[in-house]
Amino acid sequence: MTPAESESRAGAGRWERVLLNGFAVLLLLLMLCICAQVLCSALDLNPLATFQTALPLLGRALTINSLLDLQWHLLVVIGLLPAGLVWRRDGHVRVDFLYAGFRARTKAGVDLAGLLVFTLPFLLLSVPAGWSFMLRAWSSSEMSPNGGLTDRFLVKSLLPAGLAILLLVALLDLWPLGRRLLGRR
């Protein structure tokens, strides 16, 4: 790695840390949300709050079902959006008992082939599919049928967003992988 490269990596690293801290806060929020749901249903507190006008996502009331919906909304965020970060750290699971023993060039070959054969076809076709998936939720103003959260297109829009982040991150790998495959650093 050249000094310039390592500097830009460090810059990227700082951003990754900030993002990761954000997700970590959401995780703690998820925990509190579950505990709040348990507490509210034990104490028969429902609805927790009602509003005169419909608020975004919450609608007219905050109910136990809103808390339940909020939990899986947070799961969508925590599960999908950091996937690109995890990719940058090479954190996605590999069955590496063969891979670990490969030379650097062979590894680059596996990764480039995997990128072209598996990752790119999947992401290039599922990002647009995710986009139209979100649009259909938006055009029908889809919401919880059980008095939970409204504006379902918001959470559905995380799908194309998360997949697009992955696509971007995967494309950024093309150039360095190609160089390593050719034996350059």
Binding site: W87, H92, V93, R94, V95, D96, L98, Y99, A100, F102, K107, V110, D111, A113, G114, V117, F118, T119, P121, F122, S126
Partner: peptide, 11 residues
Amino acid sequence: AGYRVAFVLAG
């Protein structure tokens, strides 16, 4: 071959 399992499956 050791490629990321999630992406082998989806790919």
